[in-house]
Design a protein around this nucleic acid. Sequence first.
DNA 1: CGAAAACGTTAACAAAAGATAAGGATTTGT
DNA 2: ACAAATCCTTATCTTTTGTTAACGTTTTCG
Lengths: 203, 203
Amino acid sequence: MDELKAQAIFREQLKKYVEFNEAEWIVFAPYLSFVTLKKKKNFIEPGIVCKDVGFIVKGSVRYFHVKDGEEITGYFSFENEYVSSYKSFLTQTPSVHYIQALEDTDLITITQKNMQAMLANPMLGYKMERFGRLLAEHYLICYEDRVSSFITKTPEERYIDLLSISSGREILQRMPQHYIAHFLGITPVSLSRIRRRIMVESK
Amino acid sequence: MDELKAQAIFREQLKKYVEFNEAEWIVFAPYLSFVTLKKKKNFIEPGIVCKDVGFIVKGSVRYFHVKDGEEITGYFSFENEYVSSYKSFLTQTPSVHYIQALEDTDLITITQKNMQAMLANPMLGYKMERFGRLLAEHYLICYEDRVSSFITKTPEERYIDLLSISSGREILQRMPQHYIAHFLGITPVSLSRIRRRIMVESK
DNA sequence: CGAAAACGTTAACAAAAGATAAGGATTTGT
DNA sequence: ACAAATCCTTATCTTTTGTTAACGTTTTCG
């Protein structure tokens, strides 16, 4: 994947939130970087301030904490999704988790510095505010649903939900089960039992 | 509390995100409504599209789901915080939960229609995009932390965390314990046991 | 003021989840 | 291709949580 193709894909996906005309794009594009992450390389690590937000052109990443020496995977992002340690990026404080490439991954990234520059740029500022708003709103909604599921549902119900939504099925297909277990807030052993329970009940 | 005083408080708090000069404020203010919610009255109910986002001038609200006939309280908002069923408000789809006043509560509200009108208004659009972005980012960060705590911590650890942060202490002081239990993702009985465990251990 | 409702604790039991370990299958990396 | 590592399942045991119910206290509201 070359940089121009990656930019074209990003521009297309960006239309969900905001569209740039040619003149604007010519000003906008130089603020972008093209980054390739080899499998198992980290996008961000704990203790480091997250300098970039990324758009995944190809590949996937997982978010994980390390607690008592164990990796606990809390989230995933795939093609055409955005990736950042948002709190760290937005507040420029150290990240508390890792984000790691699950396969060779191509990204379009924007540094916090460039983001601020664009927000202050008369030609781009308005649309960048809008982009930032819609992106934050999108993830806010995702998180709202996720917190709801932790409050109101059992792990078994959360797993069944995952089976029934398309983004969940993508996770189930592409991620090893022990990542999914932690994503649901339980241990891999417990998820294995839940799966067996469901199998037996619906036999 | 009269409407003008409420507007003045709102304007002051708004400065965290965006400041309006006099000319802008004169255009902005008519888009605002002043709403008083009596204790136990609902700001939003399941099945209804949430038309407003509110700023709490005085009072407090709780968010709750009803599952199997039982109320499960998932969140609270206090003075100088914003309140909305965000997914419902932002996507204009029916809410899945209630938001209810815990005491007589005064709000400044903005309808989705007025929000869209302001975003399209040349005099206000830029600042409203910014306001919306920063507000969404603020709640995004809150939710990111909360999801993290569900993934990486036990209920007991989440309770101890609550004791150690100022927003948590406010919740502990102002909310009955069974609301806090559900907020932590457990039952009131279980929270009572956790409290006893902590008492005994630190005696 | 007084009855009713709500609240927090505790107990007893059932259900679920965590921890640890073992075994077999699959994948990875050299 | 083969040794090592990873992954999923299963079993056992412990810990925690859920459920239901009882009891005393506090709060609410007519």
